[in-house]
Simulated assay, not measured.
Amino acid sequence: MTTSTDERLHYFIDKQEILELVNRYCQAADRHDHDALRALYHADALDDHGAFFKGLATDFIDKLPDIQAPMEILHHNVTTVNIEIDGDYAEGEVYILAFHKAAGPDGSIDVLIGGRYFDKYEKRDGEWKFSHRVVVADWVNIQDPSIVNLEHPFVAGSHIGCPGADDPSYAFFKLIKRQTP
């Protein structure tokens, strides 16, 4: 079966829109931008973080302010991405490295997770959004206490990222839009 150039272009445009959706998720999660996260999911979308949370994505996002409160740093990195598209439905296996620096009762800890997102996407009203996401941890590295040191002389004077609207990206970008809390 021969695929026309128009069909191939449509496929690659859809694939790029899905890749951008995945990247916007990481951006919104790291900035604790819950409104931006909410916009990435269909209203009936499901989120499955294992025993941690399983249910409607909107309910998970409602819980994120409490979940993220101790998070001093969140840094999600997408690596390998495998996407298959069938019309207005697609699936993705997205490999991630997610770093967390979290405050605890005895000081901060670092958690580096190598994992994958098992995603289902649907294009409704011309827009790709998540319809179901499952989070899978393949490995975890925990440093207790934290080994992150943003006050070391090596980084003196550097711009330091942070959750929320105080992150330097909010003031820098004109085209890359951020939600404001």
Rank of each mutant, 00 (worst) to 15 (best):
G126P: 02
H75N: 14
E72V: 08
D14G: 02
F53V: 09
T80G: 06
K54F: 13
D106V: 10
E72W: 01
V81G: 00
F154H: 15
D47C: 05
G114L: 02
I113M: 01
L97P: 10
V136N: 14
P145E: 00
E127M: 04
N23E: 03
K15V: 04
K129R: 08
A102M: 09
Y41V: 10
G115I: 00
Q68C: 06
I96K: 02
V136Q: 15
D88F: 05
Y41A: 11
I13W: 09
F12W: 06
F99R: 11
A102Y: 04
V148F: 03
V111D: 10
V134Q: 12
T79F: 04
C26E: 05
I61Y: 09
I67D: 10
Q27V: 06
I83M: 03
L150D: 07
I73L: 04
A102C: 10
V140E: 12
W139D: 14
K15C: 05
H32F: 09
D138A: 09
Y89T: 14
T79P: 03
K129F: 04
G126H: 01
L40G: 05
I113A: 06
I85H: 01
R31Q: 12
D47I: 04
D125M: 01
A36V: 04
D119M: 00
H76R: 06
I147T: 07
Q68G: 06
L74N: 13
F60D: 14
H49A: 12
V81Q: 00
A137Q: 15
W139C: 12
A51F: 05
L56E: 12
T58Q: 15
F99W: 08
Y41F: 15
D62S: 11
S108M: 00
V135M: 14
E84A: 07
N23I: 01
A103L: 06
T58P: 14
A156I: 05
A29V: 13
A102R: 09
R38F: 11
G104P: 07
I67R: 10
H100Y: 10
H132F: 10
A39I: 01
P105K: 15
E151A: 12
F130V: 01
Y95E: 01
Y121T: 00
G50A: 12
I73M: 01
R24L: 03
D30C: 12
E20D: 05
R124E: 08
A137W: 13
A43G: 12
W139E: 14
F99A: 08
G114M: 04
K120F: 07
V111M: 05
M71F: 08
I13Q: 11
E127R: 08
E91A: 07
F154P: 14
A103W: 01
E151G: 13
F118V: 12
D14S: 07
R133I: 02
Q16W: 07
D14M: 03
A156N: 09
Y89I: 12
I73A: 05
G115F: 02
I67T: 11
A103V: 06
G115D: 01
R24M: 03
A36T: 03
H42I: 09
V81M: 01
I18Q: 00
A28M: 03
Y95M: 03
G115P: 03
